[in-house]
Computed example of a mutant assay.
Amino acid sequence: MLVPGVGSYFDEVVAGASAAATAAGARVILGIAPYGANSDRAQVDRLLESDVDGLLLTPHWTPGEGLGGSEWLVDLPVPAVLVERRAAPEASAAQLDAVCSNHRHGVLLALRRLSELGHGSVLLAARSDTRTAHEVRAGYTAAAHHLGLAELPVIDVDSPSTISSPESVHDLTARIAEAARSGVRAVLVHNDQDAIQLPPLLRMHGLSVPEDIALLAYDDVYAALCDPPLTAVAPPKRAVGTEALNLLLRRLGAGDELPVHQIELLPTLKIRKSCGNPV
């Protein structure tokens, strides 16, 4: 199983796959190819040297370009299932099985909740370097249009390699505070690693969550640990891992007799304190 990292989102994905493998009398061998390291192929080659029967793959994916540079995936000597990735229809990797969260639906859940609370616009602060980020941004545009909300310019959130910079976090906070002065009172942040840093920093601008700002997070890895606990979109991370492993086992048993499966699982919305009452 190849993932871009552990310690956050993919922990639950790996846990789901590992539990399903154990139940089937199999074992997961883990490889990590961090974002930006360009080590996908080297890590896959290492996994293949372990005589694995199949692969669960979350390769680096450049938003808007499918799985550019990953044509080699279709020539692997064992079956492979993409996990939280899907190739563009015209890409050769589109013929691979895939299991993903439907992040556009997740964003719709978040914006619908805020709309029901009376917000006429929602500010999105999001990363731009992963498939999830790409889908969150596309989902924001679609959901705002569907719900009749004003679509605002997206605030770019730095990638994990730079988000630890205090300057980037304070800049994000300042831009949210500026939007609040213009009447925006609801923010969706992808992801919650960034969102949980905001409440104390917003207080420095005279803004409290949820009294002045309704704050939602995307991913629900750390959101419940914030003060106040953050309402969050929760992709079905563990279920994605479980479904991907079970699909791989089916592929191993049926071979080409099994049609290509590209499965999407729906996120849920975890309601906590950070949205407040109707405005």
Rank of each mutant, 00 (worst) to 15 (best):
M1I: 01
G7T: 02
Y9G: 00
D11P: 03
A17C: 10
A24W: 01
R27S: 08
S39D: 09
Q43C: 10
L47Y: 01
L47D: 07
L48F: 04
S50Q: 15
D53F: 09
W61K: 05
W72G: 03
W72R: 01
L73W: 01
L76V: 01
P79D: 09
A80N: 03
L82E: 07
E84N: 14
A87D: 11
E90G: 11
A91Y: 11
A93Q: 01
A94E: 08
V107K: 05
A110N: 15
E116G: 06
G118S: 14
S121R: 15
V122A: 02
L123D: 02
A126F: 07
A126W: 11
S128L: 07
A138Y: 09
A138H: 15
Y140A: 03
A144V: 00
H145A: 14
H145I: 10
H146D: 15
L147A: 14
A150N: 11
E151R: 14
L152N: 04
I155W: 03
V169F: 03
L172M: 13
R175K: 08
I176W: 01
I176C: 01
A177V: 05
R181A: 13
S182T: 13
A186S: 06
L188I: 05
D194F: 08
A195M: 12
I196Q: 01
A214V: 09
A214Y: 00
Y218P: 03
Y218S: 02
D220P: 12
V221C: 11
L225F: 11
L225H: 15
C226A: 15
P228T: 07
L230V: 01
V233C: 06
V240M: 02
N246M: 03
L247Q: 04
R251K: 11
L252V: 06
H261E: 15
H261A: 15
Q262N: 15
I263S: 08
E264T: 10
L266M: 14
P267D: 09
L269R: 12
K273L: 14
